[in-house]
Design a protein around this nucleic acid. Structure first.
Length: 426
RNA sequence: GGACAGGUACCGAAGCGGUCAACCGGGCUGGACUGUAAAUCCAGUGGCUUAGCCUUCGGAGGUUCGAAUCCUCCCCUGUCCA
């Protein structure tokens, strides 16, 4: 007997909370479910991967996924999980962000399926033209202020010193109205989201019931946690975006590969399509031989391929092999340029390396690899500076043309992972 | 407006006339170990032409051979009183 979508989400640990009849409802027919995406940035980041996969999983179970981008609500700002009033975005900014997000959703959802094709909607389409009077009559009437004040997201802000603006206070009603609208126009009666959306989703379910006497359902995913206590999706070098322009596939791959041991199995469940059996097998391998990092590798491979495609994934793997493998001089310059595509680089004139060349300390400072020569000096003394992947332990060393790979490239490295490319002016 | 308390490097926090570029902890950066991990251990953490020199301890002056340390004025923060 095959699983229901609810059972599927359950074993993956994706059900933080759900309305009581979610399972029965989704098991008994093809339904339509939506998740809202916030256009506060022009790209989604790995944090959005969970809801995106949620929609995709729904679709695989025969349901119709609707991705709602918040063109209208994005202009307002959701107070959930926020402690301060949010910055308002301009219409243009929201527009631009919407386009970016749409392209990123496309690989995950099948928009051409015959019976349950995915759908993308923008709530600006119905929120935009709606007048205030109309809104207050049709939506506002169904909400008591008491009800809204009782919601956690509002309560916290009401108690805070800076309070909450009327605009953000109203956000919940707008999102609830989205649900009503989708229920009317697309027969959508399920909303999913992050656990912080529970309050908003309940508000939507209530509104649908009051305004159209229909029963709606909701399910929220857990907050993705990180065993090391940092915020998921952030690294020292910043947020991990889905947009390859912002986070290169290489970095993306590395992000997953460097997952904390304790998180690897949950992440496999969250972010991949692998079966329960496959994951438990990986889990066993990891238990037995953690050093192999088989689970990490599979996680990185799967997710990178999912987001960036297999070609990009393979290239990211090759790059890693070279970067962590050793000698660079065997690799053609052309490939090196590819591998170091997203690494900071500096272009220096050829004269810098002719004759007496440039001192190693000066080079570090000029390229910005270190903030000062003093820092460079300490780095060299500590044995943390590498030129073309060979440790450079002499602070008096001078770099000349003979160090350049094929006469045009120099790879500086600080520590294990911090690379800097030096190119010669053409 | 008045009374205290206090402002020290990325953060917290010592120092209270010379031995202070400034204890210590955190963070950060390297190194060792390892699995491109965690934990642990070690080193470094103002700049420089580095056995030395230069610029720092809220700001500006002053006392002194010598000040982060004492004095004066100013600015800011916290608490209490009005």
């Amino acid at each position: 007997m095959s699983k229901t979508i609810f059972e599927e989400l359950s074993w993956r640990g994706l059900v933080y909370d759900a309305t009581p009849e979610f399972d029965a409802w989704t098991a008994s027919g093809s339904r339509t479910a939506y998740i809202g995406f916030d256009p506060t940035a022009s790209s989604l980041h790995v944090g959005s991967l969970l809801p995106i996969m949620g929609l995709a999983r729904m679709q695989r179970f025969g349901h119709r996924p609707v991705a709602l981008v918040g063109g209208g609500t994005g202009l307002i700002g959701d107070p959930s999980g926020k402690t301060a009033e949010r910055q308002m975005l301009t219409r243009d900014a929201v527009e631009e962000n919407l386009r970016g997000i749409q392209t990123q959703l496309e690989p995950f959802l099948d928009f051409g399926a015959v019976s349950n094709a995915a759908l993308m909607v923008n709530n600006l389409d119905w929120l935009g033209p709606m007048g205030l009077v109309e809104f207050l009559r049709d939506v506002g009437k169904h909400f008591t202020v008491n009800y809204m004040l009782a919601k956690e997201s509002v309560k916290r802000r009401v108690q805070s010193e800076d309070g909450i603006s009327y605009t953000e206070f109203t956000y919940m009603m707008l999102q609830a109205y989205d649900f009503l609208e989708l229920s009317r126009t697309h027969d959508c009666d399920i909303q999913m989201g992050g656990s912080d959306q529970w309050g908003n989703i309940m508000a939507g379910i209530d509104l649908v019931r009051k305004a159209s006497s229909r029963k709606a359902h909701g399910l929220v995913f857990p907050l993705v946690t990180n065993a090391s206590g940092t915020k998921f999706g952030k690294t020292e070098s910043g947020t991990i975006w889905l947009d390859p322009e912002r986070t290169s596939p290489y970095r993306f791959y590395q992000f997953w590969l460097n997952t904390d041991d304790r998180d690897v199995v949950p992440y496999l469940k969250y972010f991949t399509w692998l079966s329960e059996d496959a994951i438990s097998e990986l889990s066993d391998i990891h238990e037995a031989q953690p050093g192999r990092r088989e689970a990490h590798r599979v996680l990185a491979r799967e997710v990178t391929a999912l987001v960036h495609g297999e070609a990009e994934r393979d290239q990211a793997e090759e790059a890693a092999a070279v970067l962590f493998g050793g000698a660079l001089d065997k690799v053609p310059v052309k490939d090196l340029r590819d591998i170091f595509d997203d690494v900071p680089s500096t272009v220096l004139p050829r004269e810098a390396f002719s004759g007496d060349g440039t001192g190693i300390l000066e080079l570090c400072e000029r390229t910005g690899l270190t903030a000062s020569r003093g820092e460079a000096r300490r780095l060299v003394r500590a044995g943390g500076l590498f030129v073309n992947n060979e440790r450079q332990g002499d602070e008096q060393a001078v770099i000349t043309a003979s160090h350049l790979i094929e006469g045009e490239l120099l790879v500086l490295r600080k520590g294990k992972k911090s690379y800097h490319l030096v190119q010669i002016e053409a």
